Amino acid sequence: MSNHVYKLIDLVGSSTTSTDDAIRNAIETAALTVRHIDWFEVTETRGHVVEGRIAHYQVTLKVGFRLAPDTPDGGDASATGGGAQAGGVSGIGTA
């Protein structure tokens, strides 16, 4: 088994369909700018209610990505760019 070092980021994803879809949205969007995503953990689940109906499902995730030796500091040069930081995921509801 290899030794790996991981960095954690927090993401928030949302969906009008389901919590599973909100998770998928967060991971797939983050994967556009963060390489080597290996795992996630759902830390919070929320929703936005409008007129007695669920308008958005919203989840907060901790996402672990493996640091690669591509740069001198051991991190991946593209690993923290773009929309990968907390709240940087598109489609976030107003909950």
Rank of each mutant, 00 (worst) to 15 (best):
15 S>M: 04
36 H>Y: 14
20 D>T: 13
18 S>D: 08
51 E>G: 11
21 D>P: 02
91 G>H: 08
14 S>K: 00
55 A>H: 09
73 D>P: 09
33 T>E: 11
25 N>D: 05
33 T>C: 13
89 V>T: 15
14 S>C: 11
60 T>N: 07
16 T>R: 10
28 E>S: 12
73 D>K: 12
53 R>Y: 01
83 G>N: 10
6 Y>Q: 00
37 I>Q: 01
95 A>C: 11
78 S>H: 12
28 E>C: 08
21 D>S: 09
92 I>W: 01
88 G>E: 04
82 G>S: 11
89 V>S: 10
83 G>K: 05
68 A>P: 02
73 D>Y: 05
5 V>T: 14
54 I>G: 04
50 V>C: 08
41 E>S: 11
94 T>L: 12
18 S>Y: 01
50 V>Y: 15
29 T>H: 12
7 K>Y: 04
69 P>S: 14
38 D>L: 08
79 A>Q: 11
23 I>C: 01
37 I>G: 00
64 G>P: 03
27 I>G: 02
5 V>G: 05
35 R>A: 13
81 G>S: 13
73 D>Q: 10
26 A>P: 02
27 I>A: 06
32 L>P: 00
23 I>S: 00
13 G>H: 01
54 I>R: 13
9 I>P: 00
74 G>C: 05
74 G>T: 09
66 R>M: 06
82 G>N: 08
65 F>T: 05
32 L>C: 07
63 V>L: 05
27 I>S: 06
6 Y>L: 11
49 V>H: 03
56 H>Y: 14
59 V>N: 05
77 A>S: 06
79 A>E: 02
